[in-house]
Amino acid sequence: MATPSRPVPVLFRPLPKGGRLLKHLLLIGFGLVMLYPLLWMVSSSLKPEELIFRQPGLWPSEVTLDNYVDGWTALKHPFGYYLWNSAVVTALSVVANLVACSLAAYAFARLGFPLKKLWFAVMLGTIMLPHHVVIVPQYIMFSKLGLINTIWPLVMPKILATDAFFVFLMVQFIRTLPRELDEAAEIDGAGYWRTFYRVVMPLCLPALATTAIFTFIWTWNDFLSQLLYLNNPDNFTVPVALRTFLDSSGESSWGPMFAMSIVALGPIFGFFLAGQKYLIRGVATTGLK
């Protein structure tokens, strides 16, 4: 009699072939339903205006770039002008966050100082703080300083490391690096500053990449602050400019609005494709969105 073979754990037993195929079919179907609105927006942006709502299908029977041409010039400035404004705000925010948050994170992760535990707890507390609690006084402050319609209200908080999420992310990351490296650098005569930017920062590249990508996406998408602080069409960024489409064109010109929405989503989509690894890892380890 043959000895009974050990049972394969139920969860690992491969599904029967048909079952596996069914699972994939269901997943693909579900994915299609989820992405359908996005795909529909892309295809609609390529259709002549009058066809958009008569065809729920994806394949345009007639392809035209008119919507892009019309949308690009529909507002006070060509759309590229708003893209540039957004790019400036976003680039400054990314640089500011990288520098300010990593400086603070190094101190929390590696240096001893009085009341460290208290300040660390305060820093964690500010992560949970709803932004709306501070917007009224912040707005008053920036308006008294005459900084409405400048980029300072948008960039200043980043220069001052108020995105505590990223400080925390980097503290966690630096803590995983072996301390012997710091000590070796110190023996070689490096001060704190040199240790920070010659030893610790180069090893932090993954955390810095996550910070950069998320800062990019959040700033590019951010609507509330830009709506509050930029009221002059000459300073509009992409989200605020897109919003004026709703006012100026009412319900009629959806084609150009879709076209410019796709232009607005383009950079995020690009970063998504390029930085997937860091995005997924960032979400998985810290719960960033």
Binding site: A107, V133, Q138, P157, V167
Partner: peptide, 28 residues
């Protein structure tokens, strides 16, 4: 020396904490 260095590294964060966060919370 270490504490002095730490406060220098934390300087932007401290300014932000008081000017951008705690000050406005109390003001509000």
């Amino acid at each position: 020396r270490e504490a002095r260095a730490a406060y220098l590294f934390l300087a932007p964060w401290f300014v932000g904490l008081f000017v951008i966060t705690i000050g406005p919370i109390l003001a509000s």
